[in-house]
Computed example of a mutant assay.
Amino acid sequence: MWTARAVLGTLPTGVAARVLACALAVSALTGCDALSTSSGPEEPSASASVPAGGTASVRPSGYGAVFLAVGECSSFGTTSFTEVLCTSERAAARVVARYDGKVADGPSCPANTDFVLHISETRPASDEDGDGAVPQGYACMRKLQPPHPGDPGGGGGPRTVVGDCVYSSGSGEVRETACDGKGEKPPEYRVTSAVEDRSKCPPSTELYVQLGGTEPVGCARPV
């Protein structure tokens, strides 16, 4: 059975938001100087393993040729994630996107991603047909049941999107938190829109957050 082991003990409860500039409410700096950013908690890192010389014929029914391929599911876990049938009572999250390589070098996960599994390369010492090899990559995971931290305002996920809330974590840094106030920290700002350039944000904007994509600037205001 293929298993992904998370290096971190827990899944991320929030993702740091990159700050381009902010109002005096967040920083004592004057003007709109760029602030330093917080890296935030790392996303779960995982190493995949398969039996040496394993082939499709000996894998449990329902497992595909690719470990955690799009549409496949993982089990519950904080330190270990096992690929299971999506109809299984053990199924906890579904793969919504799967890419080879490192996250920093590859495409961004979909906006509704709840968490990301980093899969380390595994190559059995003896593998005649190549089926046992698992290349380095990452799987973008969506939980099968709510709550979904990746949803707008959910307080987590690998991306900051319109509708998310953040709070000041000190030293000119902000972090994402749940908009409903049920997170560890109460929300201070909500990202209300995304634009190509911060000059296009509405006058009520007090915080500019880097989102990435074709509209990389998030316009945030106090909640």
Score class of each variant (00 low, 15 high):
residue 54 G to E: 12
residue 120 S to L: 13
residue 192 T to L: 10
residue 211 L to S: 07
residue 67 F to C: 10
residue 200 K to M: 13
residue 105 D to E: 15
residue 199 S to N: 07
residue 199 S to H: 06
residue 10 T to A: 14
residue 76 F to T: 14
residue 176 E to Y: 02
residue 170 G to C: 10
residue 76 F to K: 11
residue 54 G to K: 05
residue 182 K to M: 08
residue 158 P to S: 08
residue 63 Y to W: 12
residue 209 V to G: 01
residue 53 G to A: 10
residue 201 C to A: 10
residue 216 P to H: 03
residue 148 H to E: 12
residue 41 P to L: 12
residue 110 P to G: 12
residue 196 E to M: 01
residue 88 S to H: 02
residue 163 G to K: 09
residue 103 V to K: 06
residue 188 E to F: 00
residue 183 G to R: 05
residue 74 S to I: 11
residue 14 G to I: 02
residue 78 T to I: 06
residue 153 G to L: 09
residue 68 L to H: 03
residue 20 L to T: 09
residue 188 E to G: 06
residue 61 S to N: 03
residue 143 K to V: 02
residue 100 D to Y: 06
residue 85 L to P: 09
residue 32 C to Q: 15
residue 16 A to L: 00
residue 143 K to N: 06
residue 150 G to Y: 06
residue 200 K to A: 15
residue 207 L to F: 09
residue 151 D to V: 04
residue 54 G to N: 05
residue 156 G to Q: 07
residue 123 R to W: 06
residue 223 V to T: 15
residue 102 K to Q: 08
residue 16 A to M: 00
residue 62 G to M: 01
residue 3 T to N: 06
residue 109 C to G: 02
residue 114 D to N: 14
residue 65 A to L: 12
residue 127 D to Y: 02
residue 52 A to H: 12
residue 149 P to T: 10
residue 51 P to E: 14
residue 204 S to G: 05
residue 220 A to K: 04
residue 150 G to P: 08
residue 133 A to G: 03
residue 38 S to D: 15
residue 22 C to P: 04
residue 32 C to F: 14
residue 183 G to C: 03
residue 222 P to M: 08
residue 162 V to S: 01
residue 41 P to Y: 11
residue 1 M to E: 10
residue 117 L to H: 02
residue 8 L to F: 05
residue 120 S to G: 15
residue 117 L to A: 07
residue 73 C to S: 09
residue 33 D to V: 12
residue 136 Q to P: 00
residue 48 A to H: 02
residue 143 K to P: 00
residue 48 A to Q: 06
residue 141 M to R: 01
residue 207 L to H: 10
residue 82 T to S: 15
residue 113 T to Q: 01
residue 173 E to H: 13
residue 19 V to E: 04
residue 79 T to D: 08
residue 15 V to H: 12
residue 10 T to R: 13
residue 92 A to M: 09
residue 42 E to H: 05
residue 57 S to K: 14
residue 60 P to Y: 14
residue 160 T to F: 05
residue 47 S to M: 12
residue 126 S to D: 06
residue 123 R to M: 03
residue 169 S to F: 00
residue 28 A to E: 11
residue 55 T to P: 02
residue 21 A to W: 14
residue 152 P to T: 11
residue 41 P to K: 07
residue 87 T to W: 00
residue 107 P to M: 04
residue 4 A to M: 05
residue 49 S to Q: 12
residue 98 R to Y: 04
residue 159 R to W: 04
residue 191 V to E: 01
residue 25 A to W: 01
residue 144 L to D: 05
residue 3 T to H: 04
residue 189 Y to P: 00
residue 187 P to Y: 09
residue 25 A to Y: 02
residue 94 R to H: 00
residue 98 R to S: 11
residue 158 P to V: 07
residue 212 G to N: 08
residue 88 S to N: 01
residue 93 A to W: 03
residue 200 K to Q: 15
residue 59 R to W: 13
residue 190 R to V: 15
residue 97 A to P: 01
residue 134 V to Q: 03
residue 101 G to A: 08
residue 202 P to K: 00
residue 95 V to H: 05
residue 162 V to K: 01
residue 204 S to C: 01
residue 184 E to M: 02
residue 140 C to V: 09
residue 164 D to A: 07
residue 12 P to N: 12
residue 97 A to G: 03
residue 17 A to W: 04
residue 152 P to H: 11
residue 104 A to W: 00
residue 37 T to F: 04
residue 91 A to W: 09
residue 76 F to H: 10
residue 77 G to K: 06
residue 12 P to A: 13
residue 95 V to N: 04
residue 32 C to V: 07
residue 84 V to C: 01
residue 32 C to G: 11
residue 181 G to E: 12
residue 73 C to T: 12
residue 165 C to W: 09
